[in-house]
Simulated scan of single mutants.
Amino acid sequence: MASTPIRHLHPLFLFVLVASLRCGAAAGDGDGGEGFCSAEPSSECSGGQPLYWKVTHPTLAPAHLQDLPGFTRSVFKRDHALITPESHVFSPLPDWINTLGAYLISPAIGAHFTMYLANMQDGSKSAPPPKDVERLIFVLQGSISLSVGTGTTHSLSVDSYAYLPLLPTSLLYDFNIHIMDFQPGEYLNVKEVHYNQHGLLLLEGQGIYRLGDSWYPVQAGDTIWMAPFVPQWYAALGKTRTRYLLYKDVNRNPLI
């Protein structure tokens, strides 16, 4: 019987979370066609605590553990990982100018996408994403300017996001992003088990995440990677809502 060649999908996806250091101070650009989207403008610079303040200024550990040498809540297992802020290591980002980044998820962990934080200042700038690579930018703090191939410039404030390049109707582009909100006491109705893998950044709140047979207390600033078929479930705790940003590969061929 003759075999049919399998068409391989592109293995690398970039998911960029931009955290600028001051309101209105960051600048970045990209190329590769239109694909710009934006949430409602943020009033972060009008005073008060920024919307996602706890992501960039997290509580690293309970008070009675903060002075314990070697303490971390980070966990890495075969089919999932919890990466907490005390594990972030910032260094210069390749192809970025005047920018420090911390990689949260990468192919080295078993993922086929990359998620990282980028701290930008006045004069910071990024190169366009590599060819055939999808990039999503989500602004956590401050604001940036985004220039696309047509020469149009967009201003992105907190809660704004952009996708590069234009999303075609093709299995090569399986990028799917959700913003999930839970009020205190709300939880997922079912324990999910499916072939999609996920990347998750908690933006607000706290709760309990089940990954496999393990149960993890999580809070704003935590990152989670979930491999295909790992059992997963979440419940929101505390007095404020939970919000997290979720990556999912929805069109990927499970045979590849």
Rank of each mutant, 00 (worst) to 15 (best):
I179C: 05
D159K: 15
V158W: 09
V133K: 06
L172G: 15
L167A: 10
A111V: 01
H178Q: 09
I105C: 06
A127K: 05
L188W: 11
P129F: 02
S106I: 01
A127M: 03
Q183S: 04
F182P: 01
N196H: 15
Q141S: 12
A111Q: 02
N189V: 00
L171V: 15
V139Q: 11
G199D: 05
H194I: 01
V139W: 14
M180C: 08
V133R: 12
Y173F: 12
Q197E: 12
I137G: 13
L202K: 01
H194E: 06
S155M: 12
L146I: 10
Y195C: 02
S145H: 08
L104Y: 05
A108F: 01
L104F: 06
I179F: 04
S145L: 11
L146K: 12
V148D: 15
Y103A: 05
P168V: 10
L156G: 13
K191W: 00
V148W: 12
L202Q: 09
E186A: 13
N176P: 02
S145K: 13
N196L: 08
V148K: 14
V190A: 05
P129E: 06
T153P: 10
V190R: 07
H194M: 03
V133G: 04
P165F: 08
S160Y: 02
L164F: 10
I105L: 08
L202I: 15
D181G: 02
G185V: 06
D159F: 12
V148F: 09
S143T: 15
S147E: 11
R135C: 10
L172S: 13
P168Y: 11
E186V: 00
